[in-house]
Nucleic acid binder design. Structure first.
Length: 403
DNA sequence: TCTGGGGTCCTAGGACCC
DNA sequence: TCTGGGGTCCTAGGACCC
């Protein structure tokens, strides 16, 4: 029996909130949500009686603004608040919950720490954002099974051992817990990691699909979002099992050739995507939602200043990462939440704020600005590496280069 | 009491070229 | 007078993910 691929999906538990609890251990066990701006940062207060300095934390109650929850502790989730929920709405449900501002710089530091700890053990890591990764454990498991007689049967036992080591290494490096799913592919590993949280370790093999995957709602499939789930529900399909039982041709008629076929394959646990250990960025962008909607004419100066600042931030990001891009775009969201984008492609890549600002300004001119504006964004796409080009063309060219 | 910010990928139509 | 077929690039919008 051939060895299956052994893929792990590692998901940090309530990552932002858990990082904050490292710095404010007195909040452990309390409902805490992360979100909103820096004006909700804890302050120091002096106890009148004892003279001791104490931290004073903001509560959700009385929050006003347009922030959303990025992460909530499990205690806060128990009160019915969740990621992406508006803070105003969350304040109704859990007024006593502690509110902390997001501090991406710190989370990125912890992100680098946990990923480095994993790579020490298993180098084939695919980045999936700040708090999760896929790991291809196949070579590692194969190497450890060298002497084993019944390799296939022992593979999952061995993978479990590796996963336990990885969890321990992550905890050692960061003080944080994570949940790991182990499976023959990324799709199933991702679902598996969510089955036992926090601090879980779950194995799903091909033999488990019918019993453990099919009862789950279709939404658990990474790539089935709110729209697709609603459409499936309308068609009478709620679970992954029901999706697996649907005729592929019928799915194709309702969802198109590509997505329909993918839905069918996914429901049956089929996924051949490799773990991709390196990828180049495609675009860099900055956007901001205003505290109140701005009008193109009445708030012209404020908008112009914000617009220029966004271009400067994008330019700074590009230069720090050593990229330049040809396609400059803007994004506007109006008071009615309608979103429009315009972009333009320049003859040559740019990375300076003035050039970005000029091109972005031309894009804005093509938009009807009679409605008030809620969000403004600037994007640069079509990226090329500024100094890494030599290395890349050498790599790309090496295949066909003359001796 | 409306709904963040940073991304990727896909689709679809039109321009343009051969 | 009627009207090829393929390929690539560009643009706009939308779904989805973390």
């Amino acid at each position: 029996m051939p060895l299956p691929r052994v893929i792990a999906h590692l998901d940090m538990d309530a990552f932002y909130a858990s990082v904050e609890l490292l710095r404010y251990p007195e909040l452990r066990g309390l409902p805490v949500v992360i979100g909103g701006g820096a004006r909700h940062a804890p302050t120091w207060e002096v106890d009148a009686a004892s003279g001791e300095r104490r931290r004073r934390f903001a509560r959700l109650a009385g929050y006003s603004g347009r922030g959303v929850i990025t992460t909530a502790t499990y205690e806060a989730r128990a009160l019915g608040v969740n990621s992406a929920m508006g803070l105003m709405r969350a304040a109704q449900k859990a007024p006593e919950a502690i509110l902390l501002p997001t501090d991406f710089d710190t989370y990125r530091r912890y992100s680098r720490l946990f990923k480095a700890a994993v790579r020490e053990i298993a180098p084939l890591v695919e980045d999936r954002g700040i708090d999760e990764i896929y790991i291809d454990l196949t070579p590692l498991v194969a190497a450890r099974l060298d002497e084993a007689s019944d390799a296939a049967a022992e593979a999952w036992w061995c993978a479990r051992e590796v996963a336990r080591e990885i969890k321990q290494a992550v905890r050692q490096a960061t003080g944080l817990s994570c949940s790991i799913g182990l499976a023959p592919n990324k799709l199933l590993a991702k679902i598996a990691s969510e089955l036992d949280k926090p601090d879980g370790l779950t194995v799903i093999t091909a033999a488990d699909i019918a019993t453990r995957i099919w009862p789950l709602p279709v939404r658990r499939i990474n790539g089935v979002g709110p729209k697709a789930a609603a459409k499936l529900a309308q068609l009478g399909i709620a679970t992954i099992g029901e999706l697996a039982a649907a005729e592929p041709a019928w799915l194709v008629t309702h969802f198109g050739a590509s997505y329909g076929a993918w839905l069918h394959a996914s429901a049956r646990g089929r996924d051949e995507r490799p773990v991709v250990t390196h990828s180049e960025p495609k675009s860099v962008s900055r956007e901001i939602t205003f505290e109140r909607d701005l009008h193109a004419r009445r708030d012209r100066e404020a908008l112009a200043a914000i617009f220029t600042a966004l271009c400067e931030r994008v330019a700074a990001d590009l230069r720090r990462k050593r990229y330049a891009g040809r396609t400059i775009g803007v994004k506007l969201r109006f008071e009615d939440f309608r979103t429009v984008t315009r972009d333009t492609t320049l003859p040559a890549p740019v990375d300076d704020a003035a050039a970005i600002r000029r091109a972005a300004g031309q894009c804005v001119k093509r938009i009807d600005l009679s409605r008030r504006i809620r969000l403004l964004g600037v994007r640069v796409g079509g990226l090329v590496s500024v100094d890494g080009d030599a290395a890349k063309s050498a790599h790309g060219g090496a295949l066909f280069a003359p001796p």
